[in-house]
Amino acid sequence: MKNMNIMIVGVGGQGSLLASKILGKAAMDKGFDVKVSEVHGMSQRGGSVVTYVRYGEEVYSPVICRGDCDVIISFELLEAARWLPNLKPGGVIITSLQKINPMPVITGAAVYPENIVGNIKGLGVDIRAYDTESIAREVGNPKTSNVALIGLAQTALGIDNETLRAAVAACVPQKALDVNLAAYDAGVKLAGAV
């Protein structure tokens, strides 16, 4: 298999570290060479956060360049738009429809772009957008949107469902195991149904 380049993007505090840990573990369990690059420190305070996950035969750089990403998993719509330039031709964006206004939008210094999904589609990009907040609420924990998105992305990741599900089980807090697996399964099911 050629190297897979996955980006997990969102807003600090949305759980991108957990999502990248799950994906990294699953890729490692499949026997791939893996690099995961995380962001700690100041950017985590509500800033734009990006995590890179790369796996394949041989991976050196922990960072993914513009025009080089196979799958962007986005927890927030504006962040999907921000990282669009990193997508390679033929790549796919799997995004939550959730919108979180950044401070410049809140203060009126900038405008949150309209029709992001439609405009990205208009560029010929494969973007799949889901109401992940509803999925998370339905399974009983609003904080499981991140795991639901991993389920929604499963078929695009080149990792089988069984391995990825086991990685979810291994990485989430054990007291929230059932609800996270439910969110993951709901994501897989919804992606298959679309």
Binding site: V11, G12, M42, S43, Q44, R45, G46, G47, S48, L78, E79, A81, R82, L84, P102, M103, P104, V105, A109, A110, V111, Y112, P113, E114, I116, N119, I120, L123
Partner: peptide
């Protein structure tokens, strides 16, 4: 995208 993307600084 043609639209400018507002920055998201930490807060």
């Amino acid at each position: 995208l043609a639209d400018p993307i507002p920055p998201r600084p930490p807060v």
